[in-house]
Simulated scan of single mutants.
Amino acid sequence: MRLIILGAPGAGKGTQAEVLSKKLDIPTISTGEIIRNAIRQGTDLGKEAKQYIDRGLLVPDDVVIEIVKDRLTQDDCKNGFILDGFPRTVPQADALTKMGVTIDKVLSIEVAEEKIVERISGRRQCSKCGATYHIVYKPSKEENICDLCGGELIMRQDDAPETVKNRLKVYHEQTEPLKDYYQSKGLLVVAYGQEEVADTTKEVLKALGVV
């Protein structure tokens, strides 16, 4: 299965992609990860992407598309793949089609916006060892103290409520139009995020028709 996963930041795309990757035995392709890999490997495209990242700029569509295209030619993608974080815009989706990449289904994971803000702004990270917690779903034994190393737990800047709301605004403006784009092609399926990860997985599998 060749699959795209859509969803607002904090909707649980990465978690569900991981589950589907194991169940379907196909790789999850995260654009952030493959760009970091290309930079680590020092490929020509990686060097080009690094120039933008080092200046705090977004990597342009044409560079991202070439990196994705290169990744999809690798052997582990022969039986399918899961694209997480790409395409982010309708022009990127058009470019994917022009590359000759056939997509079987596009899964949109829907979660209420106030729930997303609560989920993300409740995340905490250890300032020493990087271990992650959540004040509701995965609290530390002692408030603001890491269970593993005793370090102070902090909120990352991009998890602050105002930042989350800005990220959601960008998602609604740039990425959400992809739902209509893929709906018009008859590829869109929808799963509704639940309180428990396992329950969301059931919804995802049902939406995709995977038993």
Rank of each mutant, 00 (worst) to 15 (best):
C77K: 02
A8V: 09
K165C: 02
G10E: 08
C126N: 01
T175G: 10
E114S: 13
K47G: 14
A191R: 10
L148M: 08
I109H: 05
A17H: 03
A38H: 07
N37D: 14
L83W: 06
C129N: 11
L45C: 08
P161K: 02
R156N: 10
T175N: 07
S184W: 00
A38E: 12
L208P: 14
Y137L: 09
A112F: 00
T73F: 03
R156G: 06
C129W: 02
S140H: 02
V68T: 04
V90S: 06
L96K: 09
A11R: 04
D84R: 07
K47L: 13
V106D: 08
K115E: 15
C149P: 02
D62V: 09
A95C: 03
A49L: 08
Y52S: 06
T201A: 14
T15D: 10
C146T: 02
D199V: 00
E176P: 00
P177S: 03
G10S: 07
R55K: 15
Q125D: 00
K115A: 11
K179C: 01
K47H: 08
I35P: 05
L153Y: 00
I67A: 06
Y182S: 11
L72C: 06
I120D: 05
G85C: 12
V170Q: 04
I35T: 06
L153V: 00
L96Q: 11
L107M: 09
I35Y: 04
V101K: 02
L72D: 06
Y171R: 08
A207V: 10
F86L: 03
L20H: 10
C146W: 01
E152G: 00
L20R: 11
R167D: 05
T97E: 15
I116S: 02
V197C: 05
E18S: 15
P60W: 07
Q174V: 01
L20Q: 07
E162W: 03
K13H: 12
A191H: 11
D76N: 14
Y137R: 06
S127Y: 00
A207H: 09
I34F: 04
C129L: 02
Q174S: 10
V101D: 01
I34C: 04
V59Y: 03
R119H: 08
A191G: 11
I103G: 10
Q194W: 03
G32Q: 11
S30L: 03
L83Y: 05
V68L: 14
L188S: 11
Y133T: 03
K141R: 14
K165G: 03
G46D: 05
G85Q: 12
D104M: 05
G209M: 07
E162A: 14
N166Q: 15
I39G: 04
V211R: 12
H134K: 01
G150M: 04
T163M: 11
E203T: 08
R124A: 11
